[in-house]
């Protein structure tokens, strides 16, 4: 195995992949211990999503990338610098949850400072709001692009087709990187029940949208495909459709038990074997990283447990921007 990325970068990616996995396992544990009502998340998407998060032009406003994410995006957020404890706060729905103040499910991120628009549970609507930031970023000289991701089953919604239609019009092409993380399932519905084509990315052809399907369980393949797609969208100000084949390692959500499902490729396993083989990290070093995150997050979960819940009298706050209390 010969890597193209620098060892330093590989070690950083590995660190973030472990961090994401340990966080998701911690969130699942919190759910099972009654410290949260529902879990849904991204274990199995790390090899694709960490390289994505690391390459985002992070910041606020049109010159930075806008992110319209779905609920499996924790590796993207952690790679951008999000704190694991904040995800635990959202899981426990305490008042200090910075993403929703205890109002939303775990992994429903939102961070205006980083152009991360609110994650919604509604499948595929993010491909519609992405059109809007895409239009905003057609402004002359604008450096930011719009990134949107979602699952494979969701592409059956008309909203996915809307994104293809709007982004590829010759009179107003949109700088949009449209991503589909294809885990082959939508809750319990296999891919073949949704779609008769070979690849989802090929749908881009009908709109003359550049597209590609990659193995999202491979770190380097993902890293370079994302790099090239981003470069194209950033420079050409045109859309790109990227499909990444990934795994769903703990089932759909807590609704299906949130137990490890053996059989699927675990990208972290694969990557660790490669790192060991290439003598970039030893097994002991990798175990150490995992142990460190495990104990850190265990402590953080304890801390979150005793943080105050939001008060019921705050329900009317923020119906309107800057408004507090009952307003009518």
């Amino acid at each position: 195995m010969k890597f193209k990325l620098e060892p330093k970068k590989l070690i950083q990616i590995h660190d973030l992949m472990i961090k994401s996995r340990v966080l998701e396992e911690r969130l699942i544990r919190m759910y099972k211990q009654n410290d949260g009502y529902f879990w849904i998340g991204g274990p199995g998407e790390e090899a694709f999503s960490v390289p994505l998060g690391l390459q985002v032009n992070k910041g606020m406003g049109l010159d930075h990338d806008f992110l319209h994410l779905h609920y499996r995006s924790s590796p993207i957020m952690l790679s951008m610098g999000a704190e694991p404890i904040d995800s635990m706060r959202q899981m426990k729905n305490v008042a200090s949850d910075p993403y929703s103040g205890g109002r939303n499910f775990a992994n429903h991120y939102s961070k205006r400072e980083w152009n991360v628009v609110p994650v919604t549970s509604t499948i595929e609507t993010q491909y519609l709001t992405a059109i809007g930031t895409g239009i905003a970023q057609t402004k002359k000289g604008c450096k930011g692009i719009t990134i949107v991701n979602g699952g494979d089953s969701g592409t059956a919604e008309g909203d996915f087709a809307s994104a293809l239609v709007w982004s590829s019009r010759p009179m107003m092409p949109l700088p949009m990187l449209m991503i589909v993380t294809n885990n082959g399932m939508g809750i319990s519905t296999p891919y073949c029940n949704q779609f008769g084509g070979d690849t989802i990315s090929a749908r881009g052809n009908a709109f003359k949208i550049k597209n590609q399907t990659i193995n999202g369980n491979d770190v380097e393949e993902s890293y370079f495909a994302i790099q090239a797609a981003m470069k194209y969208v950033r420079e050409e100000r045109k859309p790109f459709l990227l499909e990444a084949k990934v795994s769903r390692l703990y089932g759909h959500s807590s609704a299906s038990g949130a137990n490890f499902v053996p059989g699927d490729v675990d990208s972290l396993d694969v990557f660790e074997k490669q790192l060991e083989e290439a003598k970039i990290l030893t097994r002991a070093q990798m175990e150490k990283v995992r142990e460190n995150y495990n104990s850190q997050m265990q402590e953080q979960a304890k801390q979150v447990k005793v943080e105050p819940m939001p008060s019921g009298d705050t329900i009317y706050d923020h119906v309107y921007y800057g408004q507090k209390g009952r307003y009518w």
Partner: peptide, 13 residues
């Protein structure tokens, strides 16, 4: 749906 979604996105921007 595209029109309303685009409006929301422009609002975010």
């Amino acid at each position: 749906r595209g029109i309303v979604g685009a409006a929301i996105g422009l609002g975010f921007a």
